[in-house]
Nucleic acid binder design. Structure first.
Lengths: 239, 239
DNA sequence: CGGCTGCTTGATCGCTCTCAAATGGGGTGG
DNA sequence: CCACCCCATTTGAGAGCGATCAAGCAGCCG
């Protein structure tokens, strides 16, 4: 457990599901947590495994993805520090419906099922927070669903990038860098298209000076240009 | 109609969120509920309204749908008797993200926000059940998302119909009838396509003897045929 | 019976997938 | 330190699914 950085209960204070819980509750949670690290590429859990653990990410970035019966990959979401993932045990699911893999070096806490049950019993507010988080996630998936059903690929990719900027954007000179390795394939699986189409789109944006991208790297040079594509505004916004 | 049947707490026993709650809790819930009826086409709530009520459907069928900023309609789901809808207040959302309209004559119970809060406080198991329901819904949306991202329209329509059979299928001679008025447009909004494409697909299925359909009516004659289309099996299954 | 609403069907267009092949950057092992 | 190999990416060509546009049709209700 909390090998370095001393008090893990301090880390938990910033995590939404543990908010407003009081220090004794945090200590309670921290004491029953297991500390987990993963190198880039490491796996937290795999789709189909018995869902017996809940995770909270302290540092790093995790890709949560699904494989359809036909073998297509879908990226469900990217989780960052302070976010919860593998929340299936919270609501009684049997198996993980997705795989969670570390995109960068990761550091996480986790609780087994009986631990989460006990925590939620003792601190009912945790259940309320869990409800809130799940509700928000539901709203988000629905909005992505609507997007997929009604929007063109280019706009979907623009929106996905803007969302990623919000989650993992880092200001650098000349733009905003997405702070973890993100391949064309990843973007394609996130937006429901193919890496070829993503590559073409990024190339055209690069030509327009909107982004600068390379091997698993994306820098947004003109966020406003992306916004014009993402929203209804005319394309060709030159910020 | 359910107006008779006396005791509303009896009605609640079959609703998942109230399961295992004990009769006093049911009476508690029933006593604070408001009974609501809507004629076909009536509205329970509209997208964007302040989300102040939770609903449980006792009878009838409700369409939950969204309009995107660009004006496209999306059907989120169809709810049947015993199901909960408008659960936004449960997890603290401000506004309804969708509109709930009665597809048939409907009869429902509803609680205002303070009522649901109080109920969940007094009966924590309700919160657990709510978590379960939300989790299941999340899993379902994700699977529909994956479907939309990776499957052809015909297969999506087949799967949607099969799901509807499970929810509202009624065996009649010569097949299974979807028991509420369902237009081509509805099916299109449910599967992320256009009414034209749905119409063409249904026509071709009709030719193959798989379905029989008319104005806002669909009868599945050969469910197995639909399954062959929905799954990976070769098409042309003649059950 | 007439009009409205939902359904059908044809024709065309174009976005996006698919298939194919080449390119290049980066890390690794020698 | 260099060469090689692997993997991500780029780019072209072509096909096809499904959207869009445009009429016409038919059941149903008033």
């Amino acid at each position: 457990m909390a090998r370095e950085q001393g008090d893990p209960s301090r880390l938990l204070a910033g995590v939404r599901i543990f908010q407003d819980l009081g220090s004794s509750a945090l200590a309670d949670a921290a004491s029953s947590a297991q500390r987990l690290r993963r190198a880039r590429g490491g796996i937290f859990f795999r789709q189909g495994q018995v869902a017996d653990r809940l995770f909270v990410l302290l540092a790093g970035r995790v890709k949560v993805s699904q494989v359809t019966p036909e073998g297509h990959q879908i990226v469900v979401r990217y989780s960052g520090a302070g976010e919860m993932f593998g929340c299936v045990p919270l609501y009684g699911g049997r198996e993980y419906p997705a795989t969670a893999a570390a995109m960068t070096e990761c550091d996480a806490l986790s609780w087994d099922r009986s631990g989460t049950d006990r925590l939620m019993e003792r601190h009912p507010r945790m259940a309320i927070h869990a409800l809130e988080l799940l509700g928000e996630e539901l709203a988000q998936v629905r909005s992505r669903y609507a997007e997929l059903a009604t929007e063109r690929v280019e706009r979907r990719v623009a929106r996905a990038l803007l969302r990623l900027v919000g989650q993992a954007g880092k200001k650098i000179e000349g733009g905003v860098l997405i702070e973890f390795p993100l391949s064309r394939q990843d973007l394609a699986e996130l937006t429901g298209t193919t890496l070829h189409t993503v590559s073409r789109i990024l190339s055209s944006w690069e030509e327009a000076g909107i982004v600068k991208s390379g091997r698993q790297r994306v820098i947004i040079r003109k966020p406003h240009g992306l916004v014009s594509i993402a929203e209804d505004l005319d394309e060709g916004g030159t910020a």
